[in-house]
């Protein structure tokens, strides 16, 4: 049996189904991510694991114990809220020590533990500060330390980084992962940012409409999206229906309903040229309609056989020959066309 096992979990609010017979499992020490668009039920799932949102159906087992009906405080689960949820009337030290104090420990007993936690999250020197005197990133660290000091069985993180600006966010992603490894704490991380999910996770659960639509490690999710929703959400996949692909490639038999092609696997060649040696794939004439520079990536919009394709290439000198409104040959490798269910 897996460390965490969620079966058939269902939760409705008045007229919305927030969790729709959702099941998932993961192992001890794993860093798993719930990825999905806003409103798909990520927070609801976290809150029901924490015991803050009672569910109508289904069960949650942690380490073989049924916790479905336990009170939040008896579950030994830590949670970091998107809005931090720090206690404004307490210092950093008091915030982090709050849980231990509630356990009946004296300040002298828990101070050492809290100090070590403050070192772990790199907040030395801020012990006596109040939350409003800290930056967003620092507040998030306090919230993290406050949960971690309780040594929870599972750490839940609800979009902990989404309120922070890009740079701090990248740093915290790395640091979060370091801390998670150091403590080998089972972690459930929620985000709606696919890049963040792919960078940070051991395992990703993609959610849509209160359900898990795909699970796997980042590599699997990225290279083999299970359906059109995942393909569109996870990358900027080109999604083509079978007959569109047939039209583009000028024949061939395509059994699945639709196919996803990553923008970076499509190659462009000058008119009348092609790959050498030409492997298994299709060459089609097309025209470059638009070029955008997104830093290290050049993004082409290419039209071929009435189909529009997005093509991403690394921004190098090799690409300089490609101009807007130029006629080109488009090469689509056959093994990169991922059939979607």
């Amino acid at each position: 049996m897996s460390y965490v096992q969620i079966d058939n979990l269902t939760k409705t609010y008045k007229d919305t189904i927030a969790l729709n017979h959702l099941s998932l499992t993961f192992d001890k020490g794993e860093f798993v991510t719930l990825l999905g668009p806003s409103g798909c039920g990520k927070s609801t799932l976290l809150r029901s694991i924490a015991g803050l949102a009672p569910t109508e159906e289904g069960s949650i087992h942690v380490d073989g114990v049924d916790i479905t009906h336990l009170k939040p405080k008896d579950r030994e689960i830590g949670m970091v809220f998107q809005s931090y949820g720090l206690f404004p009337n307490m210092t950093v030290l008091e915030n982090i020590g709050f849980g231990l104090r509630m356990k009946g420990m004296k300040k002298s007993e828990y101070e050492g533990k809290v100090k070590r936690m403050i070192e772990l999250v790199d907040l030395v020197g801020k012990e006596q500060s109040y939350p409003h005197q800290l930056s967003g990133g620092q507040q998030q660290r306090v919230a993290l330390a406050r949960s971690l000091v309780m040594e929870p069985k599972i750490l839940l993180l609800d979009e902990p980084l989404s309120a922070l600006d890009a740079k701090i966010r990248k740093n915290l992603q790395v640091e979060l992962r370091r801390i998670q490894r150091e403590l080998s704490i089972t972690t459930v991380f929620v985000t709606h940012d696919q890049e963040e999910a792919l960078t940070i996770s051991d395992r990703i659960f993609v959610m849509d409409l209160g359900n898990i639509v795909q699970s796997g490690n980042p590599e699997e999710i990225y290279t083999h999206p299970a359906n059109e929703f995942v393909a569109r959400f996870i990358g900027n996949y080109n999604v083509l229906r079978a007959e569109q692909l047939r039209q583009l490639t000028g024949g061939g038999s395509f059994a699945a309903v639709s196919y996803a092609i990553r923008p970076e696997v499509i190659q462009l060649f000058p008119e009348h040229a092609g790959p050498e040696p030409s492997g298994n794939g299709w060459l089609a004439a097309g025209k470059v309609k638009d070029i955008t520079v997104t830093g290290n990536v050049l993004r082409y919009l290419v039209e071929s056989q009435d189909q529009r394709l997005q093509v991403d290439h690394l921004n190098t000198a090799k690409e300089l020959w490609i101009q807007r409104d130029m006629n080109v040959n488009v090469w689509i490798p056959a093994e990169e066309c991922v059939p979607l269910g």
Partner: peptide, 25 residues
């Protein structure tokens, strides 16, 4: 609401959450 949720997850009873966290603020 978030303060109470946070306090309860950290092991506070509802009354403790009210007294230590909500009331002073």
């Amino acid at each position: 609401i978030t303060l109470v949720d946070a306090a309860e997850l950290l092991g506070a009873s509802r009354i403790q959450a009210f007294r230590h966290v909500v009331l002073p603020n």
